[in-house]
Amino acid sequence: MGVITYDMEIPSSIPPAKMFKAFVLDGDTLIPKILPQAIKNVEILEGDGGAGTIKHITFGEGSAYKSVKQRVDAIDKENFTYSYTVIEGDVLMGTFESISYHIKIVASPDGGSICKNRSIYNTKADAQVTEEEIKSGKEKASGMFKALEAYLLANPDA
C-alpha cells in the first residue's frame, strides 16, 4: 500500500468558531441545503456524531459519485479540529483503501480564518493516482468551503 499526502489551505473572512460550527458541527444539514447538487443528504448509521460515528453520504445529481461511508476519527470543538476517514464508496474508485482528512480551522490576522486540510490517500497495492485526480478533489473541497462562506456572509445570523 502506498500513501500520498496533500496539504491545502483555504482562507475565509469568517472567524474560526463560526466556520467550524457551520462546516463541521452543522455541516451534515447545512451543506445539503446550500449545495444539494453536491450532497443530497447525510445519514448517521451509528454513533452520536463524535469519534467512531459512521456516516452515509449520498451525493447530489451534479456529482460523479453515488455515495460514501465515512468514519469520524476525532473532533475537538475547542481547538477547531476534525478528522474523518472515507472507508467505503465509489469515491475510492477501486484505487484507494481509504482516504483520511484532517481539518484544522485557525484564526487569520484579519479576523477571519484559514482552513488547513491534510488529505492522506492510502492506495491499494501499487495503484497510481494522477495529479489531475488529486487536483479535482482539492477543487471540490475548496468550492464547498467557499460556498459555505458565501452562505454565512449572506446570512449573518445563521
Rank of each mutant, 00 (worst) to 15 (best):
I34R: 06
D48Q: 09
G52N: 07
P36W: 00
E97A: 00
G52D: 03
S63N: 12
S100G: 13
H56N: 12
L45Y: 05
A74R: 13
I75N: 03
A74H: 15
S98Y: 09
V68S: 04
G60W: 08
K69W: 07
D73S: 01
A38C: 12
S63M: 01
A51C: 00
S100I: 02
L30F: 09
F59H: 01
H56R: 11
K104G: 11
T81H: 06
K40S: 14
T81N: 03
Y101C: 02
V86L: 15
V72N: 07
K66F: 00
P32T: 02
F96L: 08
G94K: 09
V42A: 10
P32N: 06
S63T: 08
G49W: 11
G47M: 01
Y65K: 07
F80I: 07
A38T: 12
T95F: 01
F80T: 08
D48L: 09
S100Y: 03
T85D: 05
I103W: 11
G89Q: 08
K40C: 08
D73A: 03
G89W: 08
N79K: 15
Y82G: 04
H56Y: 11
I54Y: 00
N79F: 01
D76Q: 03
D48V: 06
P32G: 06
T81C: 07
N41G: 04
I99F: 01
G50V: 03
K69T: 00
T81F: 07
G62Q: 02
S98C: 05
E88V: 08
T58E: 13
D48C: 02
